[in-house]
Design a protein around this nucleic acid. Structure first.
Length: 840
RNA sequence: GGUCGAUUGGCGCAGUUGGUUAGCGCGCUUCCUUGACAUGGAAGAGGUCACAGGUUCGAGUCCUGUAUCGACCA
């Protein structure tokens, strides 16, 4: 035990000790019943760490540490999400390269030390290697921060969502889905990001308010009279396939079934009726283009309209002159648009309309919601492509109902988060689009045969043998083919796409649990106990994980889902980088100590947004310091056998502590770590402020050996119990103190139970009565502005009979702590307890 | 626009199944430094629980509506 305890250096000391001792290693011999398994969110390593990570990962660690102390073998691995666009972008910028899948792999490629001005084109294989190289560096930084924070994961079990095992599992699961008909390909209009040139899924969309402008444009009826529509996307005029109005709209009813001609391009299109047309919007009649938005897709599908695409994968107007435009005027107009971006084309068409006299009045600016890829910065277009999908209930009522039911089986923390899941599943309007036209990801593990003319036969899917997994179909040949048959007639081609990042992330339980590769482990951990995560990815990560588990295992992937809240600025706004208010986690840990930061994090209940508050961290640090000092005091008094606990106040203390243990345990069982900390902390402070003061003189031996032994024994029992109760929250200081009088780690000790404490049969109310009297004795001194050490000549307790009876049991300690020179006198009175005292 | 959540002393939060004087931390006021602790201690002031209505013997705690804030989804 140090002479002058300090918190400085505790983190480094204990991080090393825990690592060497394997304190948090998973016991692989444990059976499923003995295991508490956690499906940890793998952080995106290409992003930077922020306090939000520290906050939510601490929450999971609190649960993990509690469960470990209750005797569970905690399965708590950590993964890194290094699969997907963020990594690609980071690699491009970091090394100054770009991926060109048509290039051959260069085994000797080395990136330049400094990124050059122009990006170097490299093969997919080289690109992926750079992704792996950079992410390993990032992951080291992450791991050291987590260790420093005291996250009790087993660092021998880490995984990457791009590593070999994850790729194999991801592909194997996809092939299982394919085998059962749950994965399928379809050529369909798809939301498309023109910057990344990839399809995006419903779950990746977000609406953003963008400026737009209504253009009032005249179509021409057969008699030459104008029919006005209003559109924000005049550039799609050449893609118009029909006009649409509400069937009940009397203004347009006479036109249904007739045709009109588009301005400039002179294309004849029908006027049709559909209930989705809003009579209140614009002129009440709209043009349908293939495709301007998702409503166009609905109309196109339900009204069986032709497809007239004019926007390419790059977001520009297609160069190829459309066959449906036949007039010279129209062809010339189209030629002036070809190759333009949608934005430029819009201006050009407006100009042409103005010239032809078909633009009525002024262009009317508005603000309207536009669909974006959440990681993109250009509006999404809709293009028709062949893509892979996995059934998720979006087009199947039975599956949807089954998945909704699964959501109700999960125990949500907090409960109301379940609603978000249900709303999302019930609002799905299509299956899960999983193919992405990107490079760094898990390839779609299939090939297609080529017919005699060398054209792909998309419906003739060639799948790999399981033993081949993971495969890269763009680099390897399927069984029965040789690689020189790639791309030639009668040969094969590989699917060029990779899978959506969620298609792999949805398998984190399978990846960490060793599904299909380590059956022994799998049986010990599946299904998992806990999935902790953020609420904004309920629709993506949580839902997709449920989908995969439901399809493969017919069961839930975990019992509990604990949803963490946001970190808010002190001004209640969500913390964001753009506001420049992000504090780096390592600086926080340096300044306030890991225990202090954890204390703050523990104040955020599941699902509750919590303000970033260094004040709380300081309080946490103060608590840790207090634990050091109080522990030193208790231990320096020496100890005694538990049978020595005889004094009523000592027995009362342990009785009260028994209640605290019960409350903290119940709170932890309900994932309410905040309450567990609160009740422990409340007890601890009164333990320090009142109880230690009361028994101090007795512990010194001033009241005899037996009385001293009672104090010492009870203080030791209380200290041990408190250290255990605090251990999940303040792992560093508690293990430090524990090491002063134990050879092992507090974190591997058993969580306290109330039974033993209750066996001392104390009356917990004694503590309150004693504290009340002590407080009033202090008040006398405080009001007289004298030291607490000042003597009191006489004191009278006026209280109810049972209170007096209680106080008599504690009189000796009270007199010692209050420095009361003479015996207390008592007056029975049926009211609140009052003390009158005369200073010496 | 829909859904969910929040609204309690200056600030940040607790208030479990409705039941006597609504708790806690920070801050604030006053005081205390020599046998654990100044990265400390003691005592104290301060709120009627957003607003309106309702259920009830009784509501911060249940119901309805309004307002404000936030999140998620359109």
């Amino acid at each position: 035990m140090p002479e002058k305890p300090t918190l400085d250096g505790l983190e480094n000391k204990w991080v090393d000790v825990w690592q060497e001792a394997g304190t948090y290693d998973f016991d692989r011999t444990a059976t499923r019943e003995q295991v508490f398994s956690i499906d940890t969110p793998p952080p995106t390593v290409s992003g930077s760490l922020h306090v939000g990570h520290v906050f939510s990962y601490t929450h999971t660690d609190l649960i993990a540490r509690y469960q470990r102390m209750t005797g569970k073998k905690v399965f708590y691995p950590m993964g890194w999400d290094d699969n997907g666009l963020p990594t690609e972008r980071r690699v491009q910028n970091y090394y100054g390269v770009r991926c060109d899948p048509s290039l051959p792999y260069d085994p000797n490629f080395e990136p330049p030390a400094e990124p050059g001005k122009d990006q170097i084109a490299i093969s997919r294989g080289n690109f992926v290697e750079l992704c792996e190289r950079l992410t390993i560096e990032d992951e080291k930084v992450f791991e050291s921060l987590w260790r420093r924070l005291g996250i009790s994961v087993d660092w021998k079990m880490t995984y990457q969502t791009i590593d070999t095992r994850a790729r194999a599992i991801s592909q194997r699961m996809f092939l299982n889905n394919l085998k059962r008909g749950e994965a399928y390909q379809s050529e369909a209009p798809t939301l498309w990001d023109v910057t990344f040139r990839t399809a995006v899924a419903q779950a990746e969309l977000e609406d953003r308010e963008r400026p737009g402008a209504y253009h009032r444009v005249s179509f021409h009826k057969p008699d030459g009279s104008p029919l006005f529509i209003e559109t924000t996307r005049p550039e799609l005029l050449p893609a118009c396939v029909a006009l649409v109005a509400h069937p009940d709209d009397e203004r347009y009813q006479p036109l249904f079934g007739t045709t009109v001609t588009s301005p400039i391009f002179g294309v004849e299109v029908p006027v049709v009726a559909h209930t989705l047309a809003d009579p209140e919007k614009g002129s009440g009649i709209a043009m349908i283009c293939t495709f301007g938005d998702t409503t166009d897709v609905t109309w196109w599908r339900e009204l069986q309209l032709p497809t007239r695409p004019i926007i390419g994968w790059d977001g520009r107007i297609l160069a190829q002159e459309p066959e449906w435009i036949t007039s010279e005027l129209g062809k010339n107009a189209y030629a002036s648009l070809a190759g333009l971006t949608a934005h430029s084309a819009k201006e050009k068409v407006a100009e042409l309309l103005r010239e032809s006299g078909d633009l009525e009045g002024e262009i009317r600016p508005i603000t309207h919601p536009v669909k974006f890829f959440e990681k993109g910065d250009k509006p999404l277009e809709i293009v028709t492509t062949r893509q892979w999908y996995i059934r998720n209930g979006g087009r199947d009522a039975d599956l949807r109902a089954a998945l909704v039911a699964r959501g109700s089986e999960i125990t949500w923390h907090p409960d109301h988060m379940k609603v978000r899941y249900t709303n999302w599943v019930e609002g799905l309007n299509g299956d899960w689009l999983i193919s992405r036209q990107r490079f760094f990801g898990v390839p779609v593990p299939v090939w297609y045969s080529l017919d005699a003319d060398g054209n792909p036969e998309w419906d003739k899917v060639i799948v790999p043998d399981d033993s081949q997994l993971p495969i890269d179909p763009s680099a390897e040949a399927p069984h029965g083919y040789t690689s020189d048959q790639r791309g030639v007639a009668g040969g094969f081609i590989g699917d060029a796409d990779v899978m959506d990042t969620w298609a792999t992330s949805s398998l984190t339980p399978q990846i960490v649990g060793g599904w299909s590769v380590d059956d022994d482990l799998w049986k010990r951990v599946w299904p998992f106990d806990l999935r902790p995560q953020a609420h904004e990815i309920i629709r993506t990560w949580l839902f997709s994980t449920v989908v995969r588990a439901h399809l493969e295992e017919g069961q839930l992937p975990w019992k509990h889902a604990s949803i963490s809240g946001w970190i808010l600025d002190p001004d209640r706004k969500k913390m964001s980088k753009s506001k420049g208010n992000v504090v780096t986690p390592i600086d926080l840990l340096d300044e306030h100590g890991s225990d202090g930061v954890r204390y703050w994090a523990a104040s955020g209940r599941p699902g509750t947004d919590t303000a970033f508050d260094v004040g709380q961290m300081k309080i946490g640090r103060r608590l840790a310091m207090k634990i050091l000092n109080a522990s030193k005091f208790v231990l320096s008094q020496g100890t005694a056998d538990a049978t020595a606990v005889t004094e009523p106040i000592d027995r009362a203390l342990l009785a009260l502590l028994a209640d605290v243990v019960d409350e903290a345990t119940a709170a932890f069982e309900a994932f309410n770590y905040t309450k567990a900390l609160e009740v422990t902390e409340t007890f601890f402070w009164s333990f320090c402020d009142d109880h230690l003061e009361l028994v101090k003189d007795r512990a010194y031996g001033l009241a005899g050996d037996d009385a001293a032994a009672s104090a010492r024994a009870s203080l030791n029992i209380a200290l041990e119990t408190l250290l255990k109760l605090f251990a999940p929250f303040l792992p560093f200081v508690t293990d430090e103190v524990w090491s002063w009088f134990h050879p092992d780690s507090v974190h591997l000790n058993t969580w306290p139970t109330s039974a033993e404490l209750k066996s001392f049969d104390g009356n917990p109310e004694l503590i309150g009565h004693a504290a009340e009297v002590l407080s009033q004795l202090r008040k006398v001194k405080s009001e007289a502005k004298v030291s607490m050490r000042a003597d009191i000549a006489t004191a009278t307790v006026t209280a109810k009979a049972e209170v007096i009876d209680a106080v008599r049991h504690v009189e000796a300690d009270l007199r010692a702590a209050g420095r009361v020179m003479s015996d207390l006198t008592y007056t029975e009175h049926d009211g609140p307890t009052e003390i009158s005292a005369i200073l010496a």
